[in-house]
């Protein structure tokens, strides 16, 4: 494998860009870190390059609002930008009255992926966000301090300290992102289900990009790139694809001329499910609007329930969620496009 072996960084290069931003109380939304880092200095002031980042809908949603969704996406010029917002610990002195040192930092992470492999975005952003919070959740404010002072003309000993610490955090952050992305893409390739569409798509794209993935299959299994079977729908194991959710949407339709969306959902278990919230929302011009939120205190075994929601003019996409009221865990989520429903 020798010469063809590539580092995690090489794998991710050209495949994904990762943007870490924060909300500065005086300057607004400020880029904090871009991976690969070389792009940071070159492109951070390039308005065309930064356009999808600056206008990403994630900015317009509060942390609470966007929690209903795993991430907020924007498609722009062949790329999908996945965004997620979270709070991080802070001890930074703020520049606005009413905010104290402990007021948490608002951090935004955006990852861009070519549309060909946008199916990876969901898992990747979740994984990256978790790792960044786990490893840097209480350090990000130091990186923000670093960004704020690094260009100061007069560098006091305190500023120098902040810069040294900031550089270290940046380096470690870069390593973490690089490792996470490398591991993620490699795990996608190594998945045991070689018939998954996800893997096939990944392989095609990586091969197209000229990446030899044989290095990813080191260890006991000698499954090199060429060993992976091509997708054959006839051998698809339907059982393996079955999702183990307690609910199943049995029918989605539009009721006659009443302009109502009818969604029939079944509790597929043999147990009564208590205390779930059923929500129907839509996103219009980047804003998510809730049009129905209904508490179902008891849902009998195998029972089908009907949820009716008005259809909003000019809105074709709706999101349907079933959420556990106690744990707030999402038990079912489904995007509904009324254009593809038969009236």
């Amino acid at each position: 494998m020798g010469e063809l072996k590539k580092s995690n960084r090489d794998i991710c290069e050209g495949l994904t860009d990762i943007y870490l931003m924060y909300f500065d109380e005086a300057r607004g939304h400020v880029p904090l870190f871009i991976y690969p880092e070389e792009k940071f200095s070159d492109l951070v002031h390039n308005k065309t390059f930064m356009r999808p980042i600056k206008y990403h809908p994630i900015w317009f949603l509060t942390v609470d609002e966007q929690e209903a969704l795993d991430h907020i996406d924007l498609e722009f010029k062949g790329y999908t930008f996945f965004g997620k917002k979270f709070f991080a610990k802070s001890k930074r002195k703020k520049k606005r009255a009413g905010l104290d040192d402990e007021t948490p930092e608002t951090i935004i992470i955006i990852i861009s992926l070519p549309n060909e492999v946008e199916i990876f975005g969901d898992d990747l952003i979740r994984l990256l966000t978790k790792r960044i919070i786990d490893h840097f959740g209480d350090k990000l404010y130091e990186l923000i301090e670093y960004e704020n002072v690094k260009d100061e003309v007069i560098k006091t000993p305190r500023i120098k300290e902040i810069i040294v610490e900031g550089e270290k955090i940046k380096k470690r952050l870069e390593n973490l992102i690089s490792t996470t992305c490398g591991q993620y893409f490699s795990s996608v390739i190594k998945e045991t289900d070689t018939n998954s569409i996800k893997q096939q798509k990944a392989l095609s794209y990586l091969a197209l990009k000229g990446v030899d993935v044989s290095h990813l299959a080191s260890g006991e299994k000698d499954s090199t790139f060429s060993n992976i079977k091509l997708f054959d729908p006839s051998t698809r194991n339907k059982e393996a694809l079955k999702l183990n959710y307690p609910f199943n949407i049995s029918e989605i339709g539009i009721i006659g001329d009443s302009h109502e969306l009818e969604i029939i959902v079944q509790n597929t278990t043999d147990e009564e499910i208590r205390d779930v919230i059923v929500k129907i929302t839509h996103v219009k011009e980047f804003f998510e609007k809730e049009i129905m939120s209904q508490l179902v205190d008891e849902w009998f075994p195998q029972e089908e329930l009907v949820f009716l929601s008005p259809i909003t003019p000019q809105v074709n996409e709706y999101l349907f969620f079933i959420i556990d009221n106690e744990t707030e865990k999402r038990l079912l989520s489904q995007k509904i496009d009324i254009n593809i429903l038969t009236k």
């Binding site: 109502e260 009818e262 059923v278 129905m292 179902v296 089908e304 009907v306 949820f307 009716l308 929601s309």
Partner: peptide
């Protein structure tokens, strides 16, 4: 067939 199922809609 579905008309008699439990129905939920805003305000109903």
């Amino acid at each position: 067939q579905s008309s008699g199922l439990r129905q939920f809609k805003p305000n109903l």
